[in-house]
Nucleic acid binder design. Structure first.
Length: 497
RNA sequence: GGGUGGGUAGCUCAGGUGGCAGAGCAUCGGCCUUUUAAGCCGGUGGUCGAGGGUUCGAAUCCCUCCCCACUCACCA
């Protein structure tokens, strides 16, 4: 089917001719001496001393401008793009013919030659010898407009990466962000750990899990929705500062801010509370922003933002009063809560309880307004079954969420370490489950047992890495910061019998 | 799942009052030894998202379906 395509046929014919000439169209290696960027740097250094700069470069041909007996081309590698010059005189008839007849845009080649500047002052490699490294059998996206079609960009991300430099830049930044987080944490004596992805009981977050099946054990397992309960077991086990940067899976809808698999930093630190963790988040985001941009200021979707510490702390109920105009604090049951929000535009599930209604208010009315970094602190206990009660107010928990640019980028609390209270919280979650709330958390007996052995006081933190990357790369959708985001699968249209 | 917009050559896009399916780039052939979106001349390339219907005739009108984007719902 594919083979019928004209361009593909032409390329495979060239492939055959290359073979007949005794050349290998898919080479094993090429020992380059410089990257493209290094070639430019080297040339600049040598210009003063006027010594020759000879280089061997490897990359993909992204443009060809042939003038008969001479040909200009652009060679692109991971570090940049450089013009190369092929002359009949330099290469000889046979080699030049090979270039003209058998090499295409899209092919990988290795070139060897001296660096010079053309009369239009363009730094160029004068090719003395070249090797075809990989023959490309399909045409590249158009050079000028690039690849625009979003569906192709996401389904064939490699094409997006090779034709849109700014896309590669985002993922380079993503790597830098994660690296700087590790640097920051490693420098503070945290150790990085790995905990299971396959959970017998999904826990640690209020979310619907993916289910899978283990054949040998003949039992269902769940892809983790959060590593939280395992990381806390490590705190029980005597580690005092641990973190994990890894994937979580939640069986929920897609949106500009949600991908079913997403990367989360989770961190636990013994003997500290959420106040300490707040400072840690401020410092960490400052460190990451500085490392990435050299500054704590950034622009997100047209808003100038400064992540410089300290960030304001705003109590949950105060935020709702301020942005939604209702006071939920004196209210404690679902009916009264529903009554209180009746004249707001809020779509509520009929089964929504008090906590859920408060959460909805936060998302709808508060979050979009939190552009400069803000901690919302002290959440209602109903929303947070794993957080420790607020000192002096048992209706609240010591929990905070950092918001920047209207994005919820994390979640943290003083960790609940009272096993008896933890069991009660799980039990009230189980009641929500029985009432049909599929996201309510399940009782993890083994986790409660661990707490019964004693978990030191601890602060815990989760940071949504994808959203942080969105913020730092000014991306409006999570699909722009995930290399291979989830898309609907293309279904083959089967003709009817 | 609902609403809106979209899917035409490998890529970027026109066409759309029903009447031979187009351009630029890519590709192939020819000319051309300093171009850089090189240029000039000539070709190839299409299930117009899929299927069905109306019609003498459908890319265009109607129905069903698929995929994408935005948005609402759901959720982190």
């Amino acid at each position: 089917m594919e083979e019928k395509q004209e361009l593909y046929k032409q390329r495979t014919e060239k492939l055959a001719r290359i073979g007949e000439l005794g050349e290998e169209p898919f080479r094993y290696s090429y020992s380059r001496t410089h990257t493209v960027r290094q070639a430019y740097e080297r040339y600049e250094e040598n210009k003063a001393g006027s010594s020759d700069t000879n280089v061997k470069l490897a990359g993909r041909l992204v443009a060809l401008r042939s003038h008969g007996k001479s040909t200009f081309a652009d060679l692109k590698d991971d570090s940049g793009k450089i013009q190369i010059f092929f002359g009949l005189q330099d290469l000889g008839q046979e080699k030049y013919e090979f270039l003209a007849k058998l090499v295409n845009i899209g092919d990988f080649i290795g070139v060897e030659g001296g660096v010079f500047t053309t009369r239009t002052n363009q730094v160029t490699v004068r090719v003395q010898n070249f090797s075809l490294l990989t023959k490309s059998l399909r045409p590249l996206p158009e050079k000028w407009h690039g690849l625009k079609d979003i569906e192709t960009r996401l389904r064939q991300r490699y094409l997006d990466l090779l034709s849109n430099d700014e896309v590669r830049e985002i993922f380079r930044k993503r790597s830098g962000i994660i690296k700087s987080i590790r640097e920051f944490l490693d420098a503070r004596a945290y150790i990085e750990v790995e905990t299971p992805m396959l959970h017998p009981i999904p826990g640690g977050a209020t979310a619907r899990p993916f289910v899978t099946h283990h054949n040998a054990l003949d039992r269902d397992l769940y892809l983790r929705v959060a590593p939280e309960l395992y990381l806390k077991r490590l705190i029980v086990g005597g580690f005092e500062q641990v973190y994990e940067i890894n994937r979580n899976f939640r069986n929920e809808g897609l949106s500009p801010r949600h991908n079913p698999e997403f990367t989360m930093l989770e961190l636990y630190h013994a003997y500290v509370d959420y106040e300490y963790v707040m400072s840690l988040v401020e410092e960490m985001i400052n460190h990451v922003a500085r490392t990435l941009n050299g500054s704590t200021t950034l622009t997100y979707q047209g808003n100038a933002i400064d992540v410089k510490a300290p960030w304001p702390r705003m109590p949950f109920f105060q935020a709702i009063r301020q942005f939604a105009g209702v006071d939920m604090e004196p209210i404690s049951d679902a009916d009264a809560a529903r009554e209180a929000v009746s004249n707001l535009t809020l779509d509520l599930d009929p089964s929504a309880g008090y906590g859920k209604i408060c959460d909805e208010l936060l998302k709808t009315y508060v979050r979009p307004n939190l552009i400069s970094p803000t901690f919302i602190v002290d959440y209602p206990v109903e929303l947070s079954p794993l957080a420790k009660s607020k000192r002096g107010n048992p209706r609240l928990v010591e929990r905070f969420q950092p918001f920047i640019g209207g994005l919820e980028i994390g979640n943290a609390f003083s960790e609940l370490n009272d096993p008896i209270e933890q069991r009660r919280r799980f039990e009230s979650q189980m009641k929500l489950r029985e009432r049909g709330d599929e996201e309510a958390q399940r009782l993890d007996e083994d986790f409660v047992t661990a707490l019964e052995y004693g978990m030191p006081p601890a602060g815990g933190l989760g940071i949504g890495i994808d959203r942080l990357v969105m913020l730092l790369t000014d991306s409006s959708t999570i699909k722009d910061v995930v290399l291979f985001p989830q898309l609907r699968t293309v279904t083959e249209t089967v003709p009817e019998e």
